[in-house]
Computed example of a mutant assay.
Amino acid sequence: MRVAEAIKDWVVEQGLHPGDRLPGEAELIARFRMSKGTIREAMRILQAQGLVETKTGPGGGSFVGAVSKDRAHALLANYFYFRNITIADIYQVRIALEPELAATLAGRLSPEQVAELRAIMARYAEPAVDAEEERAQHVDSLAFHARLAEFAGNAMLGFFIGFMAQILADLTVYKRLYTSPNHELWERGRGHQIELLAALERGDGAAARRVMASHMEMARALMEDQEAVVMKRFIG
């Protein structure tokens, strides 16, 4: 692991970027003064982390890799897998982050970004007719929040809000939440998003923060109810 970290540090010092070729094995052995077995193990560790890619054939070799957002989300989800994270835990973070995100984006979205958010909302423009469509609409609604976070230009904020949206989407699908459509909640949730976009377009940060906070509180109550349904399903 120490040699793998040294190679990572060297990549940063050299200003290498994803896709750039790494030195061959012989050069790495000479540069880091380590045995062939140690260098190979370090490269295997970096490959497992997604930081090194190996290509075979003409023009092959080892190259700097880029860890995708989806892979990073999956690795982080594995970290939390046995830690009994609850809906309350997730929403404590969402309530802290997303209203402030909304306030900072007021008046800063381009027409193209607003159009993209409206296109996401068009996926659930009508109330669901069955449980399967209800779940799909909930996942699309979470995609709205993840995309909004990406517009902030803050990679860390976008990553964590997107991660929480992905966790909730996975729970919706794999735990088969929402056993029947709820038109009242659909109308309230969609109404919040319409109000939010209007506040963002007119540059009203205070209104954007207020609407997002109200939306998060409603979503928390909804998801906690669904969590209770799942627990009852397994216990009962």
Rank of each mutant, 00 (worst) to 15 (best):
E13R: 15
E224R: 07
L185R: 11
E227G: 10
P127C: 04
G57M: 08
L97E: 12
E227F: 06
A208V: 07
L222E: 14
Q49I: 04
Q49W: 05
G65T: 02
E126T: 13
T179P: 09
A208S: 08
L168G: 08
V11I: 11
V11Y: 00
E133K: 09
A6Q: 11
G61T: 05
G153M: 02
F32W: 02
E5M: 07
D89V: 03
K175T: 10
Q137H: 13
D170N: 15
G24R: 06
E217M: 12
I39G: 03
P18N: 03
A115Y: 03
R71T: 05
R71P: 00
G107H: 12
G65V: 00
N182E: 10
D89G: 02
A102V: 09
E25S: 15
E13A: 15
S180M: 10
A155V: 11
P58K: 15
L200H: 06
S68R: 00
V67A: 00
E5W: 06
A122C: 09
H17Y: 12
F151A: 02
A149T: 03
E224C: 09
A122T: 05
A26T: 14
A102D: 12
Q14P: 04
E150G: 05
V11G: 03
T86S: 13
L185E: 13
R147N: 06
A74H: 11
N78D: 15
G50Y: 00
Q49E: 15
K232T: 13
G205Y: 07
H138Y: 11
A72Y: 02
E116V: 08
A152V: 02
T38V: 08
A152N: 07
L117R: 06
L157P: 00
L76E: 13
Q92I: 10
A165I: 01
L46V: 11
Q113E: 14
V12Y: 03
R94S: 05
S110P: 03
R108D: 08
D140R: 10
I194C: 08
V67F: 00
D70L: 00
V12L: 07
A128G: 11
K232R: 14
L171I: 05
G50I: 00
F234C: 07
P127K: 08
E98R: 05
E5Q: 12
H183Y: 08
I39E: 02
G189H: 09
D130C: 04
Q137P: 06
D89C: 01
H145Y: 09
G162S: 00
K8R: 14
Q92R: 15
D89W: 00
Y178M: 04
I29L: 11
M164F: 15
D225K: 15
G19M: 04
G59C: 04
T38Q: 14
R71I: 01
E27I: 09
E53G: 04
L28A: 01
L148M: 09
A102N: 11
G189A: 10
E41Y: 12
G60T: 11
K8A: 12
